[in-house]
Amino acid sequence: MNLLEILSYGFIQRALLAGTLIALLCSVLGVFLVLRRLSLIGDGLAHVTFGSTAIALALKLYSAMSLLVTMPIVLLASLGILKLTDKGRLSGDAAIGLVSALGISAGIILASVGGGYNVDLLSYLFGNILSIRSEEVVIAALLCLGVMLLLTLYYNELFAISFSDELAKVSGVRTSYINAILVLLTALSVVLAMKLVGIMLISSMLIVPAASALQLARGFKACILLAALQGCSSVVIGIIISIMSNLPASASIVMVNLLFFAVAFLTRRVLHPKSNN
């Protein structure tokens, strides 16, 4: 099968379109999350998505309809992580761990009560981008548009809180509000990305493009652009490799992302051999 043939299939076009949009969201948000030391929030929220998907399946809500249950729960969980960090004398990683444990255990109990793990729930563990439906692509596109619009409007405030919360506050930035926007946008993106790479690999979509961009970028805007470029390219290359080699799409996307990271890391070591930064 050649490349043109592959690209002529509707399900592959849908996968490429939705995957690129989701990767764009994850990689841009990932830069802010990594710099705010909230890298693992993707894992935590993915576990909550697993729990909430179990609820949706128990209510016989499938595909796009399941978002009616998962979205509000995951959005609330993201605010819960912020609240625990702010008021619970917990660091961000401990708060994420708590919410994550709640999400995954709730999912396991619900799956067990509901008659064991079924195929739908398992598909959320490892993702299945090639089975994405047209309505899910439309939802991904609309959400992507909304999230990117908000990221553009709040770009400088997000930049400021990523640099320093303390300095941002004294510059009149409402840090609690901007933090809430960041985690809410992350929650939306995680729910969407579940279909792409699944719970097990979701944080790689958020972390790896940002980690690669941090190796090479000369400037904050450049860092975001590099991360977005890597995130989107990894999805396209990963999906094509998975079709041509009959490999799982989610793992292929992640492996391409990791390969990009290795190249960025080595390039930095070659260009700046004495740099520790």
Partner: peptide
Amino acid sequence: LVNPVFPA
């Protein structure tokens, strides 16, 4: 204050 790897 300053994270030495902050890309700014």
